[in-house]
Design a protein around this nucleic acid. Structure first.
Lengths: 222, 222
DNA sequence: GTGGACTTTCTTGTATACAAGAGGTGCGCC
DNA sequence: GGCGCACCTCTTGTATACAAGAAAGTCCAC
């Protein structure tokens, strides 16, 4: 395991899993890419065993597709499936926002506000990667405010699957500013502890993202 | 693989996975039970390799808990986690009901009605296992009506995790009749294609189930 | 030249061998 | 007699060897 950002803890299989997952979510591996076991084993300095366990695990959360005796690929959902996934994310995040509006501590709401400010700062710089990360932190701070770890776990699973598509749209110029308007509505509703408004704003935000991502995908023939 | 209801298709690992999953969901293995790799391998007539892959996969969807170098157990969520899981199921199923109210075909709604009738028939017989199954079919018919396979996939994941607790309450006398009242509200709202009422009724239904299951669990010192 | 079947190769699926940590047991010491 | 330490065993984690199916390339026939 000489690779760059390899986690050093736990079992090899877990490290491998984290590494591959990161590579998928961050767009190093693209949807449809073949994931050859021996190649990965060589690259990560291990045998096929931990690789296989990692691939199976990633398959079960939908990040990887394995066809028996035909190998694994980064899963490439159909456009219809991406639409469905965004719809699920939208609803779950809306639910998280609704819960956060009533359950989050004042300190947690302050954190949400801070994350929102951080987004605003990054939106100006034009550094898409940093904005993408700040955006992630904003959303996650809301999830945490929902005080439901199981919900967070489920959102993470679905969110990772649409991550490549979210990323794509974030890097599209012009999207950041409109995204910020929507973020503000969410942040304001949460600050006012208006559960329905927060849920509605969050759902709209994710659905708009979805529409844009799909339009872009269609345009790019992805 | 001489075991009774072993699926015969696909790879060994997949068959093993199905078998263990079934045993967990159906209550053959109880939360907290140790899952010894060699023991399972012997019982299912295979080597440890497919067993390990199956356990890892089941761990990633939360049915099994693996502590590094300490083995796997059927995951036993804390009471707080069970509450959270039920909350997630309630929201997702409510969403499914909302979608089904507008998207389901007339034929699909008829199927929902039929499943409801089947529940009513089974409710009288006192055969808890059959009622449990009929209840499952009723819910799944609604999921299908939502026309969102990704949502169904996610619901299944969470639903399986609370399955032992749902089962417990279903087998409790008296619960079936009140459950039927709630089912009727859901079915009626769907028949009327009233999205909000359907969502609300479904959410209430699952939350009542949750409360009862927890009260029972607490009572039984589970 | 093209279609199809065969063969060959390459990858995955499974079994087994080996390494290494966790947990229990027994002994000695206090 | 109780506590602690060391050892030993047993299970898991990893590597490798072997089996078997899938895919691609080739050769032959038409």
């Amino acid at each position: 395991m000489t690779k760059s950002s390899a986690r050093t803890g736990g079992t090899l299989a877990k490290q491998v899993e984290s590494q591959i997952e990161q590579d998928i979510v961050e767009g190093v591996f693209l949807p449809g890419d073949r994931l050859d076991e021996e190649e990965l084993a060589a690259r990560l300095n291990t045998s096929r065993t931990p690789i296989r366990e990692a691939l199976r695990t990633l398959a079960s959360i939908g990040l990887v597709a394995v066809r028996p005796r035909s190998g694994a690929t980064v899963s490439r959902p159909t456009m219809s499936e991406v639409i469905d996934l965004f719809e699920v994310v939208a609803e779950m995040e809306a639910f998280a926002a609704r819960l956060a509006a009533t359950r989050a501590t004042d300190a947690e709401l302050r954190t949400v506000a801070e994350m929102h400010d951080a987004c605003e700062r990054e939106a100006g710089t034009g550094d898409a990667q940093r904005y993408f990360d700040a955006n992630g932190h904003f959303h996650r701070s809301i999830w945490e405010g929902a005080h439901n770890p199981m919900l967070v776990e489920q959102i993470r699973i679905v969110d990772r699957r649409v991550s490549p598509y979210r990323r794509q749209i974030t890097f599209h110029p012009g999207r950041q500013s409109s995204s910020q308007t929507e973020h503000r509505q969410i942040a304001d509703a949460l600050a006012a502890r208006d559960a329905e408004a927060a849920a509605e704003a969050m759902r709209d935000h994710v659905m708009i993202l979805s529409d844009d991502a799909l339009q872009l995908s269609r345009h790019l023939r992805l």
